[in-house]
Structure formats: C-alpha cells, structure tokens
Design a protein around this nucleic acid. Sequence first.
DNA 1: AATTATTTGAGACTCATTCACAATAAGGGC
DNA 2: GCCCTTATTGTGAATGAGTCTCAAATAATT
Lengths: 141, 141
Amino acid sequence: MSKNKEKLKMVLHKEGLRFTNQREAVWNEIVTCDEHRNVDDIYMTLRKNGILVSRATVYRTIDVLVKNNMVRKLDVGVGPSKFEHKMNAPHHDHMICIQCGRIEEFVDDQIENLQDSVAKEYEFKLVRHIHQLFGICKDCQ
Amino acid sequence: MSKNKEKLKMVLHKEGLRFTNQREAVWNEIVTCDEHRNVDDIYMTLRKNGILVSRATVYRTIDVLVKNNMVRKLDVGVGPSKFEHKMNAPHHDHMICIQCGRIEEFVDDQIENLQDSVAKEYEFKLVRHIHQLFGICKDCQ
DNA sequence: AATTATTTGAGACTCATTCACAATAAGGGC
DNA sequence: GCCCTTATTGTGAATGAGTCTCAAATAATT
Ligand SMILES: [Mn+2]
Ligand SMILES: [Mn+2]
Ligand SMILES: [Zn+2]
Ligand SMILES: [Zn+2]
C-alpha cells in the first residue's frame, strides 16, 4: 500500500471515520498535484477522470484533511479558498499577485522563529498561521 | 474642520468621488471606535444612532477606505470580515483565538523588515500583507 | 443475513457580499 | 441660489461559496 494511502487510513482511523473510495479518490487527487486549486478545480478534475464524487463529499473530505495537517487551506483574498497538499514539502508561506493571481511560495525560518517568540511572549498557544504578501509580481510590473 | 474629515475629503477628491453625508457618517463611525467590527456591527450602530445609511453604502464606503489605507480589513477565518481604522496607530498584525474569537494585536519590526527583504528578493512589489496567528489565547487555555 | 451506524449525493439553504436600477443629492457654472 | 449633469444612494434581487438535510447506499458488527 502506498505511503499516502497509509497516511489517510491512519488519520481516518484516528478520527473514527471510515476509509471509503470517495475519501481515497479526493486525497489521491490532491496529493498527486502540486498546484493551488479550489474545491471546484479538484471536483471537476475528478469528474473529468470519470471518478464521481459529489461536491459535498469533496468539501467534507478536505475539511478532514485540513484539520489533520495533510492539506493547507489558502485564502487568496478573492474568490474561493485554494488548497494544496503538505506532503514532502517544507512549510512555506505565499506571495500573491493582485494583478494576475500568481502564487509564489517563500520560506523564511527567521520569520517563523520570531513568530514563535511573539506567541510565547503573549502566552498564546500557536496552532497555525497565515502569512501572505499581496502585491505585484515581477512579470506584472 | 476635524483632521479626520479633512482626510476623508482629500481621499475622496483624489479618487474623484463626492463628499456625502453617508460617506462622512460611515467614516466617522469607524474612526471613532477602536474595536474590530464587521460591516453589520457598523451598520447597526449607525442605525441605532439614528443615522440611516444603507448596508450597501456601508460596504461601498468601506471599500474606498480600505483601498486608501484608512481602514484595515481583517479576515478572521470564520464569518464576515472585520474592520478597524488605521489612524494614529502604528502598523500591527493579529493573533486570533480559535476558541473565543478574541483578537490581540502585535507589532514586530524585525518581522516587517524580513518581510520586505523577502519581497525584494523575489522582485515582488509589496502592497499589503496579512500575518495572522491562530491559536488558543491565554484565557482559553 | 440481519442489524446498526456511517457516509454519500442531490439539492435546498444560508449568509456575506455584490449588483441593477430608479430616485435622490452633489458639484460646477451661471 | 438655480440649473444641469453626473455620481450616489437605497431597495431588494442576485450571486456564489460553503453548509445542511435527509433518504438511499454502503460499511462494520453481530
Ligand atoms: Mn503553497
Ligand atoms: Mn487591529
Ligand atoms: Zn502577476
Ligand atoms: Zn480565547
């Protein structure tokens, strides 16, 4: 069994949820693509590949995946949220072009550390964060 | 004429928009309150004070204010966006309790600088940013 | 196989926000 | 101030992402 399938089984078990074809299909579609896509993108791709899963099930499954750190939810400020899997990739944040919508990823460990310090200072138990830079990308300038 | 009224007049003029009672009332309601409120909070407060401005106008006015750096839009992850004026206060970001919804502000110049460096590195023209920490606040732990 | 509990799909629903359009009000010149 | 042009407003309808309901399907348990 593939590593990713294992992972899904584990998480579903931990959550007391059943392993179903639909959940596997959704996870598989997400984990085998490295783009930032919205629910409809994912739903339509599944459908195009002849895999019939309802939109509601895509939403429901993604909720579970996000809750369990397998998928990152990305609010790009306009339109529906986007999603990307978190397998085999270090944590990163995003720069979003307000002109063309391009999403670029960035990593900055110093910022991450400072962020932890801030949380500690306020005795705030940090669960997740959003750090997004909005502006004009190189190509759009 | 008050400083804030001046400011509004300037911005509206710059945008080629007219100075109206409604726009003044909305700006006045926002600038004289230091909380993080959603459109409906603001709308209802105006209404409670006998100032009849339609919801659509509140939305429209806030758009202008946000676009012109007089108001910050705050997406708290659940429910409607919140807003706060940006007068007489240094830039800050937010920590949001996912339990009770409390919003705490924080300032970190080092993070701001690193952020600028990242943008420069990618030749990305930074216009605005969101940096929000989600977690459990001191009181909710 | 029968029983019980969960999941699914379909579509209705919610709720924040936007839109269309007729009525109203600003601003600039006279 | 008055007229004219154009922007703004209020109303309520429309939109659209996301959630919910519930009956049918599927899975687990006996
Ligand atoms: Mn990414
Ligand atoms: Mn604030
Ligand atoms: Zn761009
Ligand atoms: Zn709290």
